[in-house]
């Protein structure tokens, strides 16, 4: 074809280095993905296919299933809060943990702890902290004259409470940001300082561009995580109160394993897939303007 020798060599090397994933894709991903696409057009209990329904599952969920709409709404609501908030919290934490303080190792460990401890211990403490009557959060709010809401027990606040709780795990993302902040050459800051640049300008014109590839990573992963938010609702609220934390994947899981509607669950999964893919492509396209790759091959 119209490839130079160099291009051919690059193609061969590129494929060779990517081989582990390609092998894994063929062995363990392609078939389950294709199977689930097929299931989405059937009535499938998880064990037996009892009928082929064409687009029936898709039509039912888009036109008739009220709970589907509710779960989609809940998820998008969660996503629109959790993604920006999670980004800000994680980045601020990372910047703090990047300060030259002698005992910073201790703080890093503390901040990371919620990622280590089992979820049930964390959920207990959260319910306790957010308790409207005795919880620390409302006690503090009361001091400043605000009557705090019933965080988890009030359907209007429950989603926001789960967003708040998710920030407790921000230590994980903060570690990735921290690793990337460590990579920013100190010489850049030194030059800027001698030029008398303000802290904001250093952040805006050095830090942000230098870590922008990792920001892109974080945003896309946070989007995926928010689209598929499941665990907190599964272990703490069981989707309640009044279905206010019935997230998309929780409802999907119930259809798949509790209601024996694996076909319907597969259709839900594929709709979510399309939604996530479109979102990702938009983010990727727009990111080209913001993300600065030092090592960009031109």
């Amino acid at each position: 074809m119209g490839m130079t020798r160099q291009e051919k060599r690059a193609l061969v090397m590129g494929l060779a280095f990517a081989a582990p994933w390609i092998i894994g894709f063929v062995l363990f991903v392609a078939y389950p993905v294709a199977a689930s696409l097929y299931y989405s057009f059937t009535e499938f209990t998880g064990l037996d296919i009892t009928g082929f329904v064409g687009f029936g599952n898709y039509i039912e969920m888009l036109t008739r299933d009220e709970l589907f709409h509710k779960s989609l709404y809940n998820t998008l609501y969660y996503l629109s809060l959790a993604v920006p908030l999670g980004f800000i919290v994680a980045l601020c934490l990372a910047m703090l943990l990047n300060l030259k303080i002698r005992e910073v190792s201790i703080y890093r460990t503390c901040v990371y702890i919620p990622n280590i401890i089992p979820a049930f211990a964390a959920s207990f403490v959260w319910l306790w902290l957010l308790n409207p009557e005795y919880g620390l959060v409302n006690l503090v709010l009361e001091q400043v004259g605000i009557w705090g809401p019933g965080w988890v027990s009030d359907p209007r606040w429950s989603k926001f409470s789960i967003v708040l709780m998710a920030q407790w795990g921000a230590g994980g993302s903060a570690m990735i940001f921290l690793a990337s902040l460590q990579d920013v050459p100190r010489s850049l800051y030194e030059v800027a300082e001698l030029d008398g640049a303000s802290a904001w300008r250093k952040f805006r014109y050095i830090t942000l561009p230098m870590i922008s590839p990792v920001i892109l990573f974080h945003v896309i992963m946070a989007l995926f995580g928010a689209f598929q938010v499941f665990t907190p609702a599964y272990i703490m609220t069981a989707g309640g109160p009044a279905n206010s934390t019935l997230f998309y994947v929780l409802y999907l899981y119930r259809n798949a394993f509790n209601y024996g509607k694996m076909g319907y669950a597969s259709a839900m999964a594929w709709l979510l897939f399309i939604l996530a893919l479109v979102t990702t492509l938009i983010v990727m396209k727009t990111s080209a303007r913001f993300v600065y790759y030092q090592g960009e091959e031109r």
Partner: peptide, 28 residues
């Protein structure tokens, strides 16, 4: 391979890799 080898199709592969994360596990 995706970052440092300039081969044609690597960006498509990246999208493919990412898209395998988008299908919720219960159905696969």
């Amino acid at each position: 391979s995706l970052a440092k080898i300039p081969w044609r199709g690597r960006n498509a592969l990246l999208i493919l890799i990412l898209s395998t994360m988008m299908l919720p596990f219960p159905v696969t």
